[in-house]
Structure formats: structure tokens, C-alpha cells
Amino acid sequence: MPTVHVFARDHINTDEIIPARHLTTDVEAELAKYAMEDYDKDFVRRVKGGDIIVAGADFGCGSSREHAVWALRGAGVAAVIAPNFARIYYRNSINNGFLALECEGIVEAFRDGDEADLDLQAGTITNTCTGQSLTFVPVPQFALDVQKAGGWLEYMKAHPGAELEGESLDTRSTQAGHGHAGQPQGDEDSKEQAKKEAPHA
């Protein structure tokens, strides 16, 4: 069973996931050495292949960098589960075939070091220490296919001209405003709409 590593704080940013000073490579094995370094220096010593990160809301906010996905995957993390994610991190996860699962109440359901049973088909994660089971937002089939292929580029190579009919990523994380997952950008949307409606000089 995978071990769960709990990072309960909201708004964990990409600099904490992989500090900018280490962005001199795109090799996952190298990035993995520094995963979560500015949040927990001992994380890479504890994590094992297939382990799961449970995190607070807006995980992956801040700078856009695929390295934040690569570092965790390189360290052996199989999935990150949080109430919601920063939009760019969520999309980077999908594109790289990495599981970013939205689940309300996930932080309260686990303690650091608990073991979990993750069932993607059933859409559930169970704390095997307490027996508590939670349902996460279903993963679209195409996202599972991308994960199985190893990422978007690999998927498209194997499926030239593939059409994603009837599939969408309509979740809190894809609708989120920058840096505040789950919060619409009302002011910016209003300004943009006002520009469109304004008479031309």
C-alpha cells in the first residue's frame, strides 16, 4: 500500500515544490533530489515509489513550470490529492500524465504516514488505517489514457489525429483564477467584457 505524505497548508507554490535554483535541468531523476525541498527537506528521504501526496487547496500556485510535476513524479509520487489545484499546475499534470485529483475533505481524512488504497476506476481513496473512504472528482477517460501513454506528446504519437469527443476538464481547478483555485476572476472578466462592449473611437 502507498504511504500518504500530508502537506496540509493551502497555497503551496511551485517554488516550494521545486525551488527555482534547481531549474537547470529537465531530467526528472535530478529534479527529484530537490522535490519539496523548501517545504520539507526530509521528504525525498521518506518518499517511496507509488506514494501519494495529500495537500491543501490551491496546490501548485505561483510560477508556471512543468518541473513541479516532473520533480514529484521523479521522486516516485503517484498522485497528488487536494481540494483543488492552481489551474496551470492542474493542466501541466494532465499534459504530463500525472494524477492531480480533486477531493474535498482529503486533508482531514489522513495523517502523515497513513496508508491508502487508491481506486481510479471507482473514484475512491480509502485510508486503510481508519477505514474512511472518500470519493474524488472523476478523472476523464482521455486523461487516464494520457497518463497510461506517459504524457500528452506520447499519447498523440500513438493516436495521430485523435479527437477528444465528449471529453472536457470542467473542474474547480480548470475554472480557477490565478493563484486562488476555485475563485472566479470576476473583476478581470468584467473589465474584459467592458472593453468588448465599449464603443470604438
Rank of each mutant, 00 (worst) to 15 (best):
P2I: 09
V4I: 13
V4T: 04
V6G: 06
F7D: 09
A8D: 02
H11C: 10
I12G: 03
N13D: 07
N13E: 07
N13K: 05
T14F: 07
E16V: 03
E16P: 00
I18F: 03
P19M: 03
A20C: 11
L23A: 08
T24K: 15
D26E: 14
D26L: 13
E30V: 06
K33A: 04
K33V: 11
Y34D: 07
E37N: 12
D38Q: 13
K41E: 15
D42L: 15
V44T: 09
R45V: 09
R45T: 10
R46S: 00
I53S: 06
V54I: 07
A55Q: 06
A57V: 05
A57N: 02
C61N: 01
G62R: 03
S63F: 02
H67T: 07
V69H: 14
W70G: 10
A71E: 10
G74T: 06
A75F: 04
G76F: 02
V77W: 05
A82C: 11
P83Q: 05
P83H: 01
N84F: 01
F85G: 00
A86V: 10
A86G: 09
R87W: 01
Y90T: 07
R91K: 06
R91A: 00
R91M: 02
I94D: 13
I94N: 10
F98N: 04
F98C: 04
L99T: 12
L99S: 05
A100M: 06
A100V: 05
L101V: 07
I106R: 01
V107T: 11
E108H: 02
F110M: 02
R111S: 12
R111D: 05
D112Y: 03
G113E: 04
D114T: 02
A116T: 02
D117G: 12
L120A: 08
G123N: 12
N127R: 08
T128H: 01
C129A: 15
Q132E: 13
L134S: 11
V137P: 06
F142P: 06
A143L: 01
V146L: 00
V146W: 00
Q147F: 10
Q147M: 13
K148M: 03
A149W: 05
W152A: 12
M156A: 10
M156P: 06
P160T: 08
E163H: 08
S168F: 09
L169N: 00
D170Q: 15
S173H: 09
S173G: 07
S173K: 02
T174R: 01
H178A: 15
H178T: 14
H180E: 11
P184A: 03
G186Q: 14
D189C: 13
D189R: 14
K191H: 11
K191F: 14
E192Q: 07
A194E: 08
A198N: 06
